[in-house]
Design a binder for these strands. Structure first.
Lengths: 344, 344
DNA sequence: ATAATTTAATTAAACGATAAAGCCAAATAG
DNA sequence: CTATTTGGCTTTATCGTTTAATTAAATTAT
């Protein structure tokens, strides 16, 4: 049996101190209208009685929520988990609340969550879109409601939006250049859909590098698909069926690289022995554990922090709205510890 | 320049249809008071105008939030990321919202977040406590406010609470028994604080197994500390300094195992060559990638799902409150793929 | 045919805060 | 010494819903 205490409200405090509830409200917020002595009295009593403001009432009344909505396609992947943590940390430091929702790579869920967050009257929305997002009307809607919008890492193809991304094109270019300089000629790219920046740009980087070094692109070795393990798995099987295997693969994400790994393992093909793989992703985890893949590292900490910072700036300067774009550099991490590992 | 549309409210719809706003409110919620024909009209207009209910007003008025607060110590770790995803999925299916907060293993943050969530008037709180949580008064407070409380995986030492955990003791016992049967005698346990169930129980399982097989416990090989990579790193260094090294280590978490790995690597000690490690954690990620550790697997999917289920049951049956405890089984995964990997 | 019930709506009163305006006495200005 | 400002509160209105209490008409029961 739980005895349920009624939460204490402003009015209760007001009665006990024989002042109006507005005085209490102002005192608790440190408003200069209220004298030092009463402010102290109010705060002391509030503390004593364990007063907790009713956030809903406060937000309703003040017409702002101090809350930023965050919509991501996945949680249970290193890259997103790290980004989310960074966003939460940055928000905490700036006294903002985060409401996180997860679309699970499904556009309808994304849409539903965005509506839900708008219903909560969030001050802004940080979004990393799903692989299947093509209907962009929802984003127009967000903006038309005066809710700030910052895209994080995954950005839809539309004008006048703010975003924090990495330089995908250069990242991909570097990864391919590395491979070419190492002497590989049979190079594949298991890539992402082109309706989304990371799919498009990574492919472009791949193509530019191939073109620069005059390596012919073999169309069977270039795929366009989703970002999950399953997608990588299937893509590799497709390539395998055709017979001729590449020596090097640039995978669009870490889960895709995992899928490739699994598919290859099933066929008795060794990674990185027979095929070397580089993928985009965060290298901040497990950084000392020997890796089977090279990484085009994306600083999740920086991505998350910058997105929050940009968002708060935009919230605080509602009138001069200029879409901002921040593009962070990537860094190629080679899994050279592989040799060490085998030597152990 | 953004033209800011004023959100549409009940009253706007009411005026257009020449009915009262309560009629609109009821119609939208499918209340039987309202006739079929007006209900249809209202819904059509709401859809047309893109009406979005103001959640804060709704929650304030109805005195419930349909929201469950989730407090976890970390996001950017496989185990928690997976749990969080499971909780979100289960909540989504049951039409509940989740508000996630992250304590970063710090008790003061945890406390602050809990207060914040109470301020939001969540219907219930699912909590996985930090490694340093010792002041349990905040949990009493939660309960005294009639807010449901379910602990997930990490549970404080207090009576009459609900929880969803795994059988840590048996899990640890099994991991040690495995080691003993394999012939190891020099067995270490880099463990967690005993004020928290997972620290205490895993240690108990370790001790019971050692005792059953009459293997003496060497006190230098048993530590009690936090759950992070750093803790594992430091603990191993402590052991290393003393000179005599174990052949097998049971690590209390995956990050701790990683820390041990790193510390060992620095000293030129090979994992699993020189020392075999088993840790608690989820094995659902990267499951085909050869692992350096064995796992006492905890089904994160099941943990998250059950916690949400239990929570919703308790919310829906406010009167007959009985603390419930669900204890899930673990499974030992041996990294036997290690040999394969080296052969490749 | 009248009373009792049901249907479909309306009006009034919260919910717990904040914002805007108003008030009065004390302090300062001219 | 009067006029104006300031300090410190209070009063009133509002935020956008829902819940509870009413009402009027239509239906059913007796």
């Amino acid at each position: 049996m739980v005895k349920k205490t009624q939460p204490i409200k402003l009015e209760d405090l007001a009665k006990q101190l024989n002042v109006s509830k507005v005085t209490i409200s102002k005192a608790l917020r440190g408003h200069p209208d209220i004298s030092y002595s009463t402010t102290e009295k109010v705060k002391a009593l509030a503390e004593e009685l364990g007063y907790m403001p009713n956030i809903m009432a406060r937000n309703l009344s003040s017409r702002r929520s101090n809350t930023i909505g965050l919509v991501v396609p996945k949680i249970a992947h290193v890259f997103f988990a790290s980004i989310i943590e960074a966003v939460y940390d940055a928000a905490f430091e700036n006294n903002y609340e985060i409401v996180l929702t997860v679309s699970q790579e499904q556009a309808y869920r994304e849409r539903k969550h965005i509506l839900s967050l708008l219903s909560m009257r969030v001050d802004g929305l940080i979004i990393s879109i799903t692989e299947e997002t093509t209907d962009l009307s929802i984003f127009e809607k967000v903006m038309s409601h005066g809710v700030r919008l910052v895209f994080l890492d995954r950005v839809p193809n539309m004008p006048n939006i703010s975003s924090v991304t990495v330089n995908d094109r250069v990242g991909a270019f570097t990864a391919i250049e590395y491979a070419i300089k190492k002497g590989y000629k049979k190079i594949a790219h298991i890539g992402g859909y082109h309706n989304i920046n990371i799919g498009r740009e990574r492919f472009q980087g791949f193509r530019e590098a191939m073109s620069k070094y005059k390596i012919p692109i073999k169309s069977e070795w270039v795929t366009e698909g989703g970002f999950s393990e399953e997608d990588g798995y299937n893509a590799f099987h497709e390539i395998y069926k055709k017979g001729d295997l590449p020596e090097y693969i640039l995978a669009v994400t870490y889960p895709v690289a995992l899928g490739i790994y699994n598919a290859a393992a099933e066929k008795g093909i060794s990674i990185p022995g027979d095929i070397e793989i580089t993928c985009f992703g965060s290298n901040t985890f497990n950084k000392n554990i020997p890796s089977f893949f090279n990484f085009v590292n994306q600083s999740t900490k920086e991505l998350g922090t910058q997105a929050v910072k940009m968002m708060i700036e935009q919230i605080n300067n509602p009138k001069d709205f200029n879409p901002q774009k921040i593009v962070l550099d990537t860094e190629l991490f080679i899994a050279d510890n592989l040799s060490q590992r085998i030597a152990l």
